[in-house]
Simulated assay, not measured.
Amino acid sequence: MSSPLLRAPQPSDADAWFDFLVAQQAKAYAGIVPEDFATGQDRKYRDAWVPELAAAFASPGTARRVVAELNGGIVGIASILDGPQDWEIAAGLVPSPAGRELERLYLDPSQHGTGLARAMFNVVDEGEDLYLWLIDGNERAHRFYKRLGFADVDEQHAAGNDWGGVGMHRMARLS
């Protein structure tokens, strides 16, 4: 069995990154978010996000991203960005507990338990203080992030309408 290739995303990966992200979010949050979550995300955000992703991949600035590729397809994505994000500021969720956010870490379920998530995290992580948002009820991810040294922050927020208003909270890894 071959191992996934870990590499920086290229502008040409933007479509596949978006498709992978939406599909994995729908799988990870099945039974938590609305059943039409994936089609709603695709319909609502694809036209704006894909060009933005391509531009971000071409000029990453301080963002750190990795793609895990196996047999020509994406099986994992991860990204760390400067925080807080615009939506957090608009919602009054500032200051953030750290200056950097683990924004994405998604794996195809076929890769669960292989060590790929930790390997991807290790590629993007430079040991700085980090925070993330976790959808309540995603216990597999919660256990994983705790193993990485993240702790729950006593802060709740309802996700947007696209997400069905489900609860979420921040976790942080602080030195």
Score class of each variant (00 low, 15 high):
133 W>R: 01
133 W>Y: 13
14 A>M: 05
115 G>K: 08
145 Y>T: 11
46 R>G: 07
45 Y>K: 14
103 E>I: 03
47 D>I: 05
13 D>V: 01
97 P>L: 05
79 S>D: 07
44 K>T: 15
144 F>W: 10
147 R>G: 13
4 P>L: 04
40 G>A: 11
61 G>N: 12
84 P>W: 08
109 P>A: 11
47 D>Q: 15
80 I>T: 03
131 Y>C: 01
93 L>E: 15
70 L>F: 08
43 R>W: 04
72 G>L: 08
50 V>L: 02
94 V>E: 09
48 A>I: 09
84 P>I: 11
172 A>G: 11
43 R>F: 13
152 D>K: 15
33 V>G: 00
53 L>W: 09
36 D>A: 14
37 F>V: 04
59 S>R: 12
10 Q>T: 12
85 Q>H: 11
103 E>H: 13
10 Q>W: 00
86 D>A: 15
28 A>E: 05
97 P>Y: 11
109 P>C: 01
101 E>V: 14
53 L>D: 04
148 L>P: 08
82 D>T: 14
156 Q>L: 12
73 G>T: 15
140 R>G: 12
170 R>T: 06
120 M>T: 13
167 G>V: 04
130 L>A: 06
131 Y>A: 01
103 E>S: 09
113 G>E: 05
103 E>L: 12
34 P>Q: 02
26 A>S: 14
87 W>A: 11
86 D>L: 13
138 N>T: 15
123 V>F: 04
122 N>I: 03
38 A>V: 11
83 G>H: 08
142 H>Y: 12
79 S>F: 03
41 Q>T: 04
67 V>T: 03
86 D>M: 12
113 G>Q: 10
172 A>Q: 10
62 T>N: 10
123 V>N: 02
14 A>Q: 00
111 Q>G: 07
38 A>H: 07
165 G>Y: 14
30 A>T: 07
4 P>I: 03
31 G>L: 09
116 L>N: 05
54 A>I: 05
145 Y>R: 02
16 A>K: 00
26 A>M: 04
102 L>H: 05
87 W>T: 06
37 F>C: 03
130 L>R: 10
5 L>A: 06
145 Y>I: 10
140 R>C: 05
116 L>P: 08
83 G>I: 10
58 A>T: 07
169 H>N: 11
33 V>D: 01
13 D>H: 03
62 T>M: 02
58 A>L: 09
107 L>E: 01
54 A>K: 05
37 F>A: 00
140 R>L: 13
51 P>C: 12
46 R>N: 06
81 L>P: 00
1 M>D: 12
100 R>D: 02
61 G>W: 11
34 P>V: 09
132 L>T: 07
149 G>V: 15
122 N>Q: 14
62 T>V: 12
147 R>K: 15
50 V>S: 07
124 V>L: 04
159 A>V: 00
19 D>T: 14
149 G>L: 09
8 A>D: 15
69 E>P: 06
138 N>D: 08
121 F>H: 14
144 F>R: 06
40 G>W: 00
10 Q>D: 06
14 A>S: 07
37 F>R: 00
32 I>P: 04
18 F>K: 07
95 P>G: 06
96 S>V: 06
20 F>H: 08
55 A>R: 09
119 A>P: 01
8 A>I: 02
30 A>P: 02
